[in-house]
Design a protein around this nucleic acid. Structure first.
Length: 231
DNA sequence: GCATTAAACTAGC
DNA sequence: GCTAGTTTAATGC
């Protein structure tokens, strides 16, 4: 079958407290699958048949509004669980999972969720902590949307992506997956035109350097200032 | 301060 | 050459 190396899971939050042998058990129940960029791993409202662990790549959790517009609720980075509807007491997926880059993921049947949380020490507590963290993140984004101006929300959105996926390059920190102006507008509740204007302004000020689908933050501290205390 | 509309430009297939 | 992504300006709420 799919013989996946145990070291892939060792050290990841949900499995941190497990024995090598237990990790082997879990892996033997997993299915691994590769996804191209821009495809849906699962869709909002569909029966949540499996839950996933992202090994490589990036996932966008996308909600569709009644009007047919898209909202990017969050990004998932390698090592994180996603599609964990059971942890939220749901039997359908709350959002669509779109790959933001070429992606490799493990998955298990959702019926194993209760078994995992009961059987493996730390699995439940670690995952519920992750769920809690995500809810806090969504919560603060909500407050942001309601209270902050567009420029501040944009700064926060860039910082969030940098924190989750930033990798050092010679001139700053690069967001590790492709992002378009449209994507950022869907994260911040604005238009791609406004995103474009603000990013070009920041580029002139030397805060970011962006080419198409590609952003390097050269002055993270300046973004922090722009996002936080009114300036 | 921001969305909308429109129009033109460009990188990459 | 086509398409998706981007930029810029004009206009109006």
């Amino acid at each position: 079958m799919n013989r996946i190396d145990e070291s892939l899971l060792v050290g990841l939050p949900p499995f941190r407290r497990l024995e090598r042998k237990q990790i082997r058990e879990i892996l033997d129940l997993a299915v691994s699958k590769r996804f191209d960029e821009g495809v849906a791993v699962f869709s909002e409202g569909m029966p949540a048949e499996r839950f996933y662990l992202l090994l490589d790549g990036y996932i966008r959790a996308v909600k569709t509004t009644p009007g047919g517009e898209h909202i990017i609720a969050m990004h998932i980075a390698p090592g994180q669980l996603f599609g964990i509807a059971a942890a939220l007491g749901r039997d359908t997926y709350p959002a669509t999972a779109i790959t933001a880059a070429e992606t490799l993921a493990l998955s298990w049947p959702m019926r194993l969720w209760d078994e995992f949380t009961a059987k493996y020490d730390g699995f439940a507590s670690e995952t519920y902590k992750v769920v809690g963290d995500r809810m806090q993140d969504i919560q603060s984004q909500l407050t942001e949307l309601a209270t902050q101006a567009v420029e501040q929300r944009l700064a926060s959105a860039l910082l969030r992506m940098v924190n989750q996926s930033g990798r050092k390059v010679d001139n700053g920190i690069e967001i590790a997956f492709p992002v378009t102006r449209q994507n950022i507008s869907e994260m911040t509740g604005t238009t791609l035109h406004t995103v474009s204007r603000v990013l070009s302004a920041w580029q002139k000020q030397g805060i970011v350097e962006s080419t198409r689908r590609h952003i390097v933050v050269t002055e993270p501290h300046q973004l922090v200032l722009l996002s936080g205390v009114a300036g």
